[in-house]
């Protein structure tokens, strides 16, 4: 992909992000933070490349550490978000 295509994806994604995030209900702002945390760990892609590549031992080890750190975030972030979201319940409708 050339730079302009990448830049286009980036700019359009910023607009998508803007509209999507404004539609998030304020009650779910904490889960929003934890799930954005989890997905920003997609940086693990870069870490995996570094860890899988031969040619530089130090680069490989940095990659492995980054894989571990990002994994904490991926598993922890999605799990804690799921735990929070499971708590949001509606009132039982017997009193109305």
């Amino acid at each position: 992909m050339d730079f302009i295509s990448i830049l286009s994806i980036f700019v359009l994604a910023c607009f998508v992000g803007y509209y999507v995030v404004w539609s998030v209900t304020p009650a779910l702002h904490t889960p929003l933070m934890s799930v954005t945390n989890a997905i920003s760990s997609v940086i693990v892609v870069g870490a995996l490349i570094a860890a899988a590549a031969a040619g530089s031992a130090s680069s490989k080890w940095l990659g492995l550490v980054a894989v571990a750190l990002a994994s904490v975030n991926i598993f922890g972030g999605f799990a804690v978000t799921a735990r929070m979201l499971a708590m949001y319940k509606k009132r039982e409708r017997k009193d109305v």
Binding site: I9, F10, G17, Y18, V20, M33, T36
Partner: peptide
């Protein structure tokens, strides 16, 4: 895409 989403969020 993720970076842009999280950044704007």
């Amino acid at each position: 895409i993720t970076g842009a989403l999280v950044g704007s969020s």
